[in-house]
């Protein structure tokens, strides 16, 4: 059973995602669910290697090489579990957490041995930050024509463009 898991080749979903790489995290906006996610370095490392060709064992090996320490498969499973829950994998295989292995135990085990950060896929939750509107749209109140996108302030209201 363990061998089967290790040979699974997860595939990351790419369609409908806006992806932005930052120095220490990866941001993903899911246009289908209208949700934004922030992957820490470990989760991003795993997700970027889910190409449908690399097996779980191979991803674990690559992560171990990066961390210069021998890592347990569980750390990759934990990443896959979170990626799957956030719909960032295509048809993912059920990870051990859904097959009787307790998620808390997994994190505890990782905590004892991890040479890399525990993978985290966090939701970005914040009110919509303002953008810099350059001119007032049609219908907005105005004091002078130059303020309106339409260049026409009519009776204190910007005309439509």
């Amino acid at each position: 059973m363990k061998t089967n898991h290790r040979q699974q080749k997860p595939l990351a979903r790419k369609e409908g995602l806006v992806i932005k790489e930052l120095p220490d995290e990866l941001l993903i906006y899911d246009t289908e669910t209208d949700r934004a996610h922030c992957l820490n370095e470990t989760a991003a490392f795993v997700w970027q290697r889910c190409d449908g060709r690399k097996s779980l064992a191979e991803i674990t090996r690559e992560l171990s090489r990066k961390a210069t320490a021998k890592l347990d498969d569980k750390i990759v499973w934990l990443a896959l579990d979170q990626l799957s829950r956030n719909r960032l994998l295509i048809d993912p295989a059920p990870p051990p957490t859904r097959q009787g292995i307790n998620r808390r135990d997994m994190v505890r085990a990782l905590g004892l041995t991890a040479a890399v950060a525990v993978p985290v896929v966090a939701s970005i939750v914040a009110p919509r930050p303002a953008e810099a509107a350059s001119c007032l749209p049609g219908g907005a109140q105005c004091g002078a024509s130059v303020q309106c996108c339409s260049n026409l302030c009519n009776d204190g209201v910007c005309a439509s463009t």
Binding site: V18, I19, K20, I28, C38, I124, P129
Partner: peptide, 19 residues
């Protein structure tokens, strides 16, 4: 944290705008 989250959202929006 509020500003960091805003930065992340703006980073994603900037990426979408570039496309």
């Amino acid at each position: 944290e509020l500003l960091h989250q805003a930065f992340r959202l703006l980073a994603l929006r900037a990426r979408a705008h570039e496309t």
